[in-house]
Amino acid sequence: MEMFSEVRNIYCIGRNYRLHALELGNEVPESPMVFTKPTHALVSMDGRVVELPGDQGEVHFELELVLRVGRALEPGMDPDACIDGLALGLDMTLRDVQSKIKAKGQPWLPAKGFKGSAPLGAWLPYPGAEELKAHDFALLRNNEEAQHGNSADMLFDIGTLLRHINDNYGLGPGDLIFTGTPAGVAALQDGDKLTALWQGKEVASCSIKLV
């Protein structure tokens, strides 16, 4: 946890890509859908083996752009000025568990916040929201492309997300934002290797062990 010692809050955005919402049969939200993960969910996506629960139904991978907040958002400030790093990360989800608790109207924490549910790659320079749209990201599963995304396809852009989180929950240095996943999520199998690509280059990877 050394590299994550400065992390404060982990905000995650649900259903921020239209095709992902539709592939799971969910309504497309009219405002940002925010949930959180505990910092204990973080694990470095540095080639290591990540252990995940294998006895609670399907575990789905969701590749996401992750933003690191370096300063508070002040009135009149360009939201881009708050961000001091970008990474690719995975929002691991216990999908069967999520389906059950959604049906009961219960919080998502058991499905989203378990240990190891937030593998995170190394930090990269943040180019700004507009320039970011020129950069694609992708996830390879056992060397085959499973997901391909671009921030231009977000339902709610980065500025909207930052302002919404700041106004409703607070935003400050050390906060992370998982910005949502594009279509292509699927259940993991024991031994799967996941590789995250930024502009076609590998920037993070891990192997999965279901226990």
Rank of each mutant, 00 (worst) to 15 (best):
E2F: 05
E2L: 04
F4D: 07
S5V: 00
E6D: 15
E6A: 13
V7G: 03
V7F: 05
I10V: 14
I13F: 07
G14W: 11
Y17L: 06
Y17I: 05
R18P: 00
R18F: 04
L19W: 04
L19Q: 13
H20P: 02
A21L: 04
L22I: 14
E23C: 12
N26Q: 12
E27M: 01
V28A: 09
P29Q: 06
P29V: 07
E30F: 01
T36E: 01
T39D: 04
T39M: 11
T39W: 07
L42K: 07
S44I: 01
S44W: 09
M45L: 11
M45G: 11
D46W: 15
G47Q: 10
R48L: 13
V49I: 15
V49D: 11
V49M: 07
E51H: 02
L52K: 01
L52D: 09
D55G: 05
Q56V: 03
Q56M: 05
Q56I: 00
G57K: 01
G57L: 00
G57N: 04
E58L: 02
V59A: 05
H60A: 05
H60K: 10
F61M: 08
F61L: 06
F61T: 10
E62S: 12
L63W: 03
E64Q: 06
E64T: 00
L67G: 09
L67D: 01
R68F: 00
V69S: 02
G70N: 06
R71N: 02
A72K: 15
A72V: 10
L73H: 12
E74S: 10
P75S: 06
P75C: 05
P75A: 08
P75I: 05
G76D: 02
M77H: 09
D78V: 01
P79V: 03
D80K: 02
D80Q: 04
D80C: 05
C82G: 06
I83S: 05
D84F: 12
G85F: 06
L86S: 08
G89F: 02
L90F: 12
L90E: 13
D91S: 10
D91P: 01
